[in-house]
Amino acid sequence: MQLTIHQIDAFTNELFKGNYAAVIPLKSWLSDDLMLKIGAENNVSETAFTCQQDDGSFVIRWFSPLMEIDFCGHATLAAAYVLCEEHNISQIRFIADAVGELNVNKNADGSFAMTFPKQAPVEVQNVPQQLLDGLSIQPSKVLKNRQAYFAIYENADQILELKTSSELLKMLYPLDVVATAPSAEYDFISRYFWPASGGDEDYVTGSIHTGLAPYWALQLGKTTLSAYQASSRGGQLTCEVGDTTVTLTGHAVRYLEGTIYI
């Protein structure tokens, strides 16, 4: 069996920036075990598998090197890049078990606007000690949603200087950790740590912005926000917050296309 694999840098218009994802379009599903093995072999933060349905929509599933992930924004962007090019289309409807329907539109400037369900966080009253001990700088407050704990800081310098203990943060599984603060250059910046699910620090995490954007929209009194994820590669997003959705817009560039032999 031969499978075509694409590797795309997402949330960037510059190669070797943003977050990389592998994309494997399928005509029929592989076994879960085989997809997990491929995700581990690829060893990028996520591998997205897609399969087109009779109604033209695409079911999408995401695998980190360790496990299946129920929601991944940057690999959705990467998959949209590949499928729009492959099928010569500018609109895609993805279906994912955990989050439902995900609509993506390719804009005239080549960017992709992805509309996701809003996942606003709520404040935590009893903060886990492993979270506090796992962060070198104590946050001003902590929130959480279904995906992660949100460590809120006063300024961007704290985000850049922050150090973490992966061993302690790993104990928070199944929740990951995002650290965020307002920024002079952007509306807000963040860093995302997921040692139990994929790696110590993710480069650019689209899914968490469905929680970050609603939080900062409320704090800043605006519904369109600019965001930067301050990892070693870095990535930029524009976030538009609606009543029940968050639309994330970003660019993507191709790194490779190849063949997997199984």
Rank of each mutant, 00 (worst) to 15 (best):
Q2N: 15
L3Q: 09
A10E: 05
A10G: 10
E14L: 02
L15Q: 04
L15A: 09
G18F: 00
N19H: 09
Y20C: 13
Y20H: 08
S31V: 03
S31G: 13
D32A: 14
D33P: 00
G39A: 11
E41R: 12
N42P: 05
V44E: 02
A48P: 12
F49M: 12
T50M: 04
S57M: 06
F58Y: 15
F58M: 05
W62G: 08
P65G: 11
A75F: 13
A75L: 11
L77P: 07
A79N: 11
H87W: 13
H87Q: 13
I89L: 11
R93Y: 02
G100M: 03
A108C: 01
G110L: 11
G110A: 09
A113E: 06
F116Q: 13
P121R: 08
P128K: 01
Q129L: 10
Q130K: 07
L131H: 04
I137M: 00
Q138F: 06
L143A: 11
N145S: 10
R146Q: 13
A156Q: 15
D157R: 04
L160K: 14
E161A: 03
K163C: 04
L169G: 10
L172K: 12
V177T: 15
V177C: 05
A179F: 00
T180F: 03
A181T: 06
P182V: 14
Y186K: 06
F193S: 03
P195W: 11
A196F: 07
G198R: 01
D200H: 01
Y203I: 04
T205V: 10
G206R: 00
S207F: 00
Y215G: 01
S226L: 11
Q229E: 13
A230G: 02
V246N: 07
T247H: 03
H251N: 15
H251C: 12
